[in-house]
Write a protein that binds this DNA or RNA. Structure first.
Length: 278
DNA sequence: ATCCTATCCTGTAGGC
DNA sequence: TGCCTACAGGATAGGA
C-alpha cells in the first residue's frame, strides 16, 4: 500500500480539512483489525477537537487536545475517507467511523486488515513500541550521502532491502525503492555496505526527487490506495520500472526485469543498473 | 545482533 | 462464464 507519499498526502488533506473539527462520536465496528487490534478507547475521543496530524514513517498520529493520540497504519489496503455527509450505500470493511459535530464523517477502511488503529494517552511517552523502532525520515531533515552510508555500515542486506528497513529509514516502501534505485542507476541486488560514494550520492538525490514528485501527484494507486476524497493517486504513470516486467526500459529500451528479494518483487533494468551483488 | 521465513487477510488479475 | 492459482503498496514473531 501506502508508502510515505501516500501517507503524507493523507496527512496534508487531513490537516487542511479535518483538523479543527470536534468529534461527536467515534466507534469501531465488530470486524477487528488483526495486527495490534487495540482500537478500544476510540470512544474516549468523543467531545475532543483534532489539533494536528503528524506523520512518522508510514504512521499517522492524530493529536486530540493534548491528551490523546490516535495512531494509524494503513498496512497494505487501509484508507482514510472523509465525507461531508454520510454516504448512503453500505461500505464493507469499515473498521472505525467518526462523526464530527458539523455532520461530516471520517472512516477507516481496510479490507485486508493488516492495518492498525489505536488510541494512546499523549503523556505516556513510553508510548508506542512500533513508533520507537522507526528510523530517520527520508525527507526531513534532508539525507546526505554520508548519512546513508553510515546507516548501511556493516549490513549485509541488499540495497533494496536496506531501503525497505523501517528501522533505518522510515517511509520508503516497495514501489518507491525500485524507482529510486532505477533513477540512481544502482543494481538493487548490490549489498548496501558495498555502494560507492558516488552511488550513495545518487541515491541521496533520488530519494527526495522520487518521494517529492509522488507527493505532488498525491501518491501512486496500484490498486487499493485512495486519497481522503476517495480518488486515486496520479503518480502511477510516472513509474519507470515498477510493475513493468518485460516492458521496454524507458531509458535504454532494454527489458525490465522482475526478481524477488525478501519475498517482495523488485523491478530493475540490468542495463541501466549494472553491477550485480558486489 | 542480524537476517530469513512464514504469517496475518481479502480482492483481483490472469490462465485454463 | 467459472474455477483456480498467484500475487498484492506491510510489519512482525520466531528461528537460524
Amino acid at each position: 500500500m501506502p508508502e510515505l507519499p501516500e501517507v503524507e498526502t493523507l496527512r496534508r488533506m487531513l490537516t487542511s480539512r479535518v483538523v479543527g473539527r470536534t468529534v461527536a462520536s467515534a466507534r469501531r465496528s465488530r470486524s477487528r483489525l488483526h495486527v495490534h487490534a487495540r482500537s478500544g478507547g476510540l470512544a474516549t475521543l468523543a467531545g475532543r477537537r483534532l489539533e494536528s496530524v503528524e506523520r512518522r514513517g508510514k504512521y499517522l498520529l492524530f493529536r486530540f487536545d493534548a491528551e490523546r493520540v490516535m495512531i494509524s497504519h494503513l498496512g497494505m489496503s487501509g484508507r482514510w475517507l472523509l465525507f461531508e455527509r454520510p454516504p448512503g450505500e453500505r461500505t464493507p470493511h469499515v473498521h472505525a467511523r467518526f462523526r464530527f459535530r458539523d455532520g461530516a464523517v471520517l472512516w477507516f477502511q481496510d479490507p485486508r486488515r493488516f492495518g492498525q488503529l489505536r488510541v494512546v494517552a499523549a503523556g505516556a511517552r513510553a508510548g508506542d513500541a512500533s513508533l520507537e523502532r522507526l528510523g530517520r525520515d527520508p525527507l526531513d531533515p534532508p539525507l546526505r550521502s554520508g548519512d546513508l552510508a553510515a546507516l548501511a555500515a556493516g549490513t549485509r542486506l541488499s540495497v533494496k532491502q536496506f531501503l525497505l528497513d523501517q528501522r533505518r529509514l522510515a517511509g520508503i516502501g516497495n514501489i518507491y525503492a525500485s524507482e529510486i534505485l532505477f533513477r540512481a542507476r544502482v543494481d538493487p541486488r548490490r549489498r548496501a555496505g558495498a555502494l560507492t560514494e558516488a552511488q550513495w550520492a545518487a541515491v541521496a538525490v533520488e530519494i527526495p526527487a522520487v518521494l517529492g514528485a509522488a507527493i505532488e501527484r498525491m501518491g501512486t494507486t496500484f490498486s487499493m490506495y485512495r486519497t481522503l476524497w476517495n480518488e486515486p493517486g496520479q503518480y502511477g504513470d510516472q513509474l519507470l520500472v515498477y510493475d513493468r516486467e518485460g516492458l521496454a526500459c524507458r531509458r535504454c529500451g532494454g527489458r525490465v526485469r522482475r526478481i524477488v528479494q525478501g519475498q517482495r518483487a523488485t523491478f530493475f533494468c540490468p542495463t541501466c543498473q549494472p553491477g550485480g551483488r558486489r
